[in-house]
């Protein structure tokens, strides 16, 4: 599903070069729930952005669903993010003037579903995630946990092949955070491939496999199942 070969990323400003990823090799199997851990500044987010096609690596190869992503045009990458990838960000990243259901709808509209189709799918998704009573609320009227659920609904509504989540629980209290992880577990049980960055050993327990990053390299790998 994901093949990463000798991936490096160096941030360059005028005269400073900051190497962040220094040669990452990684394979993720279909249906796998991968956890990425490491100290702050280790390069976890950076790695996720590269694999999630939100950024261009300095060198190396990323193959997603057997497509080499470096040869893709900007439009093809956008198209791939729309149809095959889903994202959950630490700060939920919802569009403030859209209601919960409208937030979930936009990627579906972009994929070509009609307005009513998108609306139906989105409401079903929100129901599945336990938010059926909040569909018409705007993000500002929802709690952090609820917003993160909307964000997951948005990431999942179009059945992505891979779900990326960068510290999805970092802004949440223990109970909300736990319920989000439960949600991930349910998705994973139904066969969803998930790549998640987390700081909490507690939540990492649910992953099939955890890789530990340090100084831009994978220093340890733990298989849990």
């Amino acid at each position: 599903m994901i093949k990463v070969k000798n991936l490096t990323k160096t941030y360059k400003t005028k005269d400073i070069e900051t190497p962040v990823l220094r040669g990452i090799d990684l394979n993720v199997a279909p249906g796998e729930f991968l956890g990425i851990m490491g100290k702050s500044g280790a390069g976890k987010s950076t790695l996720m952005y590269q694999i999630g096609l939100l950024d261009h690596p300095t060198s190396g190869e990323i193959i997603l669903n057997s497509k080499n992503t470096e040869q893709m045009s900007t439009e093809e990458r956008t198209q791939m993010r729309l149809s095959e990838l889903g994202y959950v960000f630490q700060d939920y990243a919802l569009i403030p003037e859209l209601t919960a259901v409208e937030n979930v709808m936009i990627p579906l509209l972009m994929k070509g579903f009609s307005k009513s189709e998108s609306c139906d799918i989105s409401i079903k998704m929100l129901e599945r995630i336990g938010l059926s009573h909040r569909v018409d609320n705007k993000p500002g009227q929802l709690s952090g946990g609820e917003q993160q659920r909307v964000s997951i609904a948005r990431a999942m509504a179009h059945n992505p092949k891979i779900l990326f989540a960068d510290e999805p629980t970092a802004n949440l209290d223990t109970i909300s955070g736990y319920s989000i992880i439960q949600l991930f577990k349910e998705l994973h049980d139904k066969g969803q491939t998930i790549v998640m960055v987390t700081h909490e050993e507690e939540y990492a327990k649910y992953c099939d496999r955890i890789i530990y990053l340090e100084d831009g390299k994978i220093v340890r790998e733990v298989k849990q199942k």
Binding site: L54, E75, T78, Q79, M80, R81, L82, S83, L85, G86, Y87, F89, A93, I95, P96, I106, P107, M110, R154, A155
Partner: peptide, 14 residues
């Protein structure tokens, strides 16, 4: 700009 970025991020075309 942030929301524009997010929309592009989740695959909405420019």
């Amino acid at each position: 700009r942030k929301y524009i970025g997010i929309m592009k991020g989740i695959g909405i075309s420019e």
